[in-house]
């Protein structure tokens, strides 16, 4: 099965150093989940500027892991939050993003055990 992420770009960033790759995955796994949780809460509060701010901030991190599906989701959330015009779908979009990310997290955890 094709992995929903790639480590090539990350690897290039840190000079193909395995230890640094694992350390960066750890940082990613520690910092992104709380932001996704925040997105859920802020969306339920209809705080769209804050939703936009967080989506905008974490977007490049997903790009580093080349998580294409998640990247498409977060870009969509960012766009909707900025335009404040699709309140109905943004909550479900964030939920979907969260579920997809949970699956990827498990796979990334395995990378740390290699």
């Amino acid at each position: 099965m094709k992995k929903p992420y790639k480590l090539d770009k990350l690897s290039e960033f840190v000079g193909n150093d395995k230890q640094q790759i694992q350390e960066m995955i750890t940082i990613f796994l520690e910092t992104i989940p709380p932001d996704i949780d925040k997105l859920k809460i802020l969306a339920s509060e209809k705080n769209w500027p804050k939703v936009y701010e967080i989506a905008h901030r974490i977007k490049p991190s997903f790009d580093v892991f080349e998580m294409e599906d998640i990247l498409a989701d977060i870009k969509n959330i960012e766009k909707i939050a900025r335009e404040h015009n699709a309140e109905g779908t943004i909550v479900s979009d964030i939920k979907e993003l969260s579920e997809n990310f949970s699956k990827i997290m498990l796979l990334l955890q395995l990378e740390l055990e290699k």
């Binding site: 990350l10 960033f13 840190v14 000079g15 640094q20 960066m24 940082i27 990613f28 910092t31 992104i32 901030r57 974490i58 490049p60 991190s61 580093v64």
Partner: peptide, 16 residues
């Protein structure tokens, strides 16, 4: 950089 992951990544890259 306010994103801790991306900031750390840039830092480590430049420290190469």
């Amino acid at each position: 950089e306010d994103d801790p992951f991306y900031g750390e990544l840039l830092k480590r890259h430049l420290q190469l």
